[in-house]
Design a protein around this nucleic acid. Sequence first.
DNA 1: CTGAAAGCGCTTACAG
DNA 2: CTGAAAGCGCTTACAG
Lengths: 350, 350
Amino acid sequence: MPRKKADSPNAPLAPGQAATINDIARLSGVSKKTVSRIINDSPLVRQDTREKVQALMKELGYAPDPLARALAFRRSFLIGMVYDNPTAQYIVDMQYGALDALRGTSFELVVHPCDTRSPGYIEGVRRFVQQQKLHGVILVPRASEDQALVEMLDQIGCRFTRIAALPLDETSATVVTHDRDGAAEAADYLLSLGHRDIALITGPSAYRSAHERTSGFLEALERRGLRLPPERIIEAGYTFESGVAAAEKLLLGGQRPTAIFTGNDEMAAGVYKVAMRAGLTIPRQLSIIGYDDSPLASRLWPSLTSVRRQTRDTGRTAAAMLIQPEGSALRTASVRPHLAVRDSCQPPEL
Amino acid sequence: MPRKKADSPNAPLAPGQAATINDIARLSGVSKKTVSRIINDSPLVRQDTREKVQALMKELGYAPDPLARALAFRRSFLIGMVYDNPTAQYIVDMQYGALDALRGTSFELVVHPCDTRSPGYIEGVRRFVQQQKLHGVILVPRASEDQALVEMLDQIGCRFTRIAALPLDETSATVVTHDRDGAAEAADYLLSLGHRDIALITGPSAYRSAHERTSGFLEALERRGLRLPPERIIEAGYTFESGVAAAEKLLLGGQRPTAIFTGNDEMAAGVYKVAMRAGLTIPRQLSIIGYDDSPLASRLWPSLTSVRRQTRDTGRTAAAMLIQPEGSALRTASVRPHLAVRDSCQPPEL
DNA sequence: CTGAAAGCGCTTACAG
DNA sequence: CTGAAAGCGCTTACAG
């Protein structure tokens, strides 16, 4: 025998059983389709019908099942976040931001760390997107900079928002973080304190963020007539250890600079270590500026002046762009960095 | 007219269209039900049938749709992670660990930060679980310690795994992190270096982790005949700022201890700040041990000796417990902490 | 060991 | 503005 359903016209709801669209339709005397229209904010419903049905929904605590909607829509209510090993605070802030935008909606956040250097990673993201029929994905640097990844997503018709230091192309939805401007502000600050012998420890030049921070910093110096000699510019790897190695070159032999700007806080912590070990006093003998304004910046002693990225805002904006109605979709948004001044800089000693 | 389906017996697959269970059934000449049995590893399928169908699945790159399965099962393939504001590295490590266990399965990880002090948070978790029909949730401290949360989950029949410093009850699945043992190892190490005037900065006593670390530390000292006077024990809030305040009490007036153990690395960084500001040399004049082995521990100078929690292992184990077949379910697992020795301790000056 | 029918809770395509 | 039918891609309950 087929399973039977309790669909007699006025059968009350089974207690403890969540209401479905069928219950709402039956008890309010309209068709499922009309209920569906109300769920989906269709204008094709008379106002009094809408109100009557909505009142019943509220009374029964009805919420449409996202799994059923997803199956019918062929698209889930999940937003993916794809990233390749950024610092923990950055990724957590990005998650909090995205969740800010998703709160109160039916959307949830699914995380997908990956390794952009591993050969199968694009295929891994494709499976992730297609299996779960994701509504869209947020691409965090450095994954966001990978053109091959973006092409794959375009090809399978997956919405995405890129987060990037600068606009990467004409077409894709992007939250631009303007790293160039943040670095320029650091340069202006050091110049305003009177520094002239300045050094720069950059992230890997293959990262757009590193490139933007470097050129933003150097161009700001050049606007004030200062051009750094090549030996004052060292490329490192955005890691603490690489910051230590770079700082050793700058501080342990020959004449040392009076100020150092590093492409992130991790490398700045490396500079601190070398400076402390060498007995240098920060900021009296050496001024330092980092980039990220991570928790580390305020934990170090003396506390580190650093460029603050509005990471949570960035994540919120990226998620909001993905869930807004198709037509109205904003293609780009901007988030501006600014310098958080603490205790690691002062005018150079004469 | 009703929508028509391409279901002629040997219709080839539409190109670019993913295969469904209907395609597999039709092309391999069995019923959907048999294909379903194979998907779900039922023993009730003849071996040759199974092999024939599996070969076709592989050829067509078929993967069952988790959304459709979820709708039919009334349970999704999503694992939730519920947490209340731990440090970024801890939560990211926990996520990586959980994802390690989910890799290669159909499960994905959905994150749910919350505020256990806000009145509606349990209701928020309930909505999260019921709306998405989560397969199960991982409860991270401090959320894992909330009995009201656990009772709600039991009541709605949601699987969960708690992560906790010690077993919290007889029944719930738990990954036990044995914080007591980690703190005891820190105590033994300080004693072995010859310290006798030792101070302790604890986390909030309402946290089980703080309680366990405190009593593990004190009991290890007592086993060696040392009992700390009350003024050597200060309760703080697990934050950097509260560590600063506690360290000021210990270091700036009267006789200072020769060693301090803090309930986490954040508070240890606060001790560093106060010590540096006061011109004390670590570890010559003051030995310090933290708890967490966060990245901060190696970024500080001198690098901080700290108790390492195997957070990634913890997350992996918790997720694995949730996705294993019902019957075989392990109820508890253990992860052991151990001391990571760095440069922040030495024998006391005479 | 295998299958036909009904159902999970929604939406789409069509008709009125 | 509203609705009856079919479908999304699976599983369950039952029968053989």
